[in-house]
Every structure is written in structure tokens, then in C-alpha cells.
Simulated assay, not measured.
Amino acid sequence: MKAVEEKALSSGLPQKRYYRQRAHSNPIADHSFTYPAHPSDFNWSTLYPHISSNEEVKFADIGCGYGGFLVTLGEMYPSVYSIGLEIRVKVSDYVMDRITALREIHPNAYTNIACIRTNAMKYLPNFFYKGQLEKIFFLYPDPHFKRAKHKWRIINQALLSEYAYVLKAGGMVYIMTDVEDLYSWILYHLERHPLYEKVGEKEIASDPLTPKLYQSSEEGAKVVRNKGQHFLTVFKRI
């Protein structure tokens, strides 16, 4: 907790200015990650103090950024374990410190959320069993505008198969972006993948999570402040 105390506001929460990092990270590059050889090798109790041996993480916020939406998940679903996955070192450090501080400020709360620094494009099957997850979120993913970098995008046919592997039948994939070109790219790949079907507008509108997708995350809040556009789609694992 010393790091949190040194980087804290009067509220007890860490300050983002101590954790600033470049917005982009190359997910294809070799980073230094620690990951289990098999999901059974990972000790989730190191992240969730009250998790039992027969409980599993059910929600995954991939590219969780500074953790705003992850905190919202913890508040909305106190009985569900949610994990944030973030590739950037300082950003993931911030989320971890933020959760530690929240647990100290609010005893017995926020024990159902945690963050791991990892590359979700490579290591999801190392952490999650087949059909384990109920919801996966991709909120404001890096658009990687240059054509040469489209291979870095978090959604493509091969990766969708990996996401389908860790999703249970009927599990949901939520995607929000403010980049229309990326939205078109995502729709193209999802609509052509045999393991997903698009969720109807009425079902999306009635989902209690839908309003939170717009500005619970820091990136979403920035888009709202700048009066930018939002492009939302939700698909279901067949």
C-alpha cells in the first residue's frame, strides 16, 4: 500500500498523472508477461480475497484502461467476479492500485473486481476454461488506423474464435467505439463468424448495462464531453 499512499489524493484514490503512458501498445511484440500454462494453474485467490474454489470469473473487460467500467461492474454485480485485462504497464498498475484503495476506503466492497496485466490477444485460454465467461467487453479499443496495423486490431476472425472458446453458449460480447471505420470492421468480422449472432436493438435497449457502456469508462466519458459519436453493437455466442 505504500505506493498507493504516495500517489493518493485526499480521497485516498491514486492520481492518474503518476501513471501516464502512451495510448498505443503493439500487441504483436514480445512483452514480458507471467501467465499460467493452464487455467487450473492460476490462483485467483491472490486477486479476490473471498473467492472460493468452486467460483469462477464470469465477466472480462478486455483493454480495461483506467478501470472505470470495471468498477461499475463491481458495483452493479456484487456477486459476480469481474476481471480487467490491460496490456499497458502503468495503466494496469493504476487499476490495481485503484482497486486496493477502494477496498481500503470501502471495507468488504470491490473484492469482486481485479486487474491483470496481460495480452488478451495471446493468453485468454491460459486464464479461462472453455465456456467459462458470460460477458466480454471491448470498450473503445485501439483503432490502429494505419492499414499496416489492422492486424493489431483486437477483433478479427481468428481472435473471434478464441473469444468464442472462452464464452459460454449464450454469452455476450459488448463492443463500443467512437470510430466508425473500426465499427464497420468489427461488424464485418462478427457478422461473418459462424459462432456469433447479432443481438436485436430491443434486447440491447433493455439491458441494464447498456447505459453504462457510454461513459462509465474514462474513454467513454471523454467522448461524451467532446460530443463525439458512439457506435455500439452486441453479439451473442451461439
Results as ranks from 00 to 15, higher is better:
residue 203 E to C: 12
residue 20 R to I: 01
residue 34 T to Y: 09
residue 95 V to Q: 00
residue 52 S to H: 14
residue 73 L to H: 00
residue 164 A to L: 09
residue 79 S to K: 15
residue 49 P to D: 04
residue 157 Q to N: 11
residue 74 G to S: 03
residue 35 Y to T: 06
residue 60 A to P: 06
residue 220 G to W: 00
residue 135 K to A: 00
residue 182 L to M: 13
residue 153 R to I: 02
residue 77 Y to S: 04
residue 12 G to K: 15
residue 145 F to Q: 11
residue 138 F to I: 10
residue 176 M to W: 02
residue 88 R to A: 00
residue 131 G to P: 10
residue 208 P to Y: 00
residue 140 Y to H: 15
residue 120 A to V: 07
residue 220 G to P: 05
residue 50 H to D: 11
residue 187 L to D: 11
residue 219 E to R: 14
residue 94 Y to D: 02
residue 56 E to Y: 14
residue 69 F to A: 03
residue 120 A to F: 00
residue 15 Q to T: 04
residue 212 K to M: 10
residue 163 Y to L: 07
residue 3 A to P: 08
residue 21 Q to W: 07
residue 234 V to Y: 00
residue 221 A to L: 15
residue 72 T to Y: 02
residue 233 T to D: 07
residue 23 A to G: 13
residue 78 P to K: 13
residue 33 F to T: 03
residue 183 Y to D: 07
residue 97 D to R: 11
residue 120 A to L: 08
residue 71 V to W: 01
residue 7 K to T: 02
residue 217 S to M: 05
residue 62 I to E: 04
residue 42 F to T: 03
residue 230 H to E: 10
residue 137 F to R: 05
residue 48 Y to A: 01
residue 100 T to W: 05
residue 167 L to D: 01
residue 194 P to N: 13
residue 82 S to A: 11
residue 103 R to A: 04
residue 166 V to K: 06
residue 129 Y to A: 09
residue 212 K to H: 09
residue 82 S to M: 06
residue 141 P to W: 01
residue 37 A to N: 13
residue 122 K to E: 04
residue 43 N to K: 15
residue 133 L to N: 02
residue 174 Y to T: 03
residue 153 R to P: 00
residue 156 N to P: 08
residue 42 F to L: 04
residue 131 G to K: 12
residue 72 T to E: 09
residue 192 R to K: 14
residue 89 V to A: 12
residue 49 P to V: 05
residue 181 D to E: 15
residue 227 K to R: 12
residue 54 N to V: 11
residue 236 K to H: 09
residue 57 V to F: 00
residue 14 P to M: 04
residue 41 D to F: 07
residue 215 Q to R: 15
residue 137 F to M: 06
residue 5 E to V: 12
residue 12 G to E: 11
residue 164 A to R: 04
residue 150 H to G: 06
residue 3 A to H: 13
residue 200 G to S: 14
residue 64 C to Q: 01
residue 56 E to H: 15
residue 47 L to S: 06
residue 171 G to F: 03
residue 20 R to W: 04
residue 85 L to V: 07
residue 158 A to G: 09
residue 187 L to N: 11
residue 198 K to R: 14
residue 139 L to K: 08
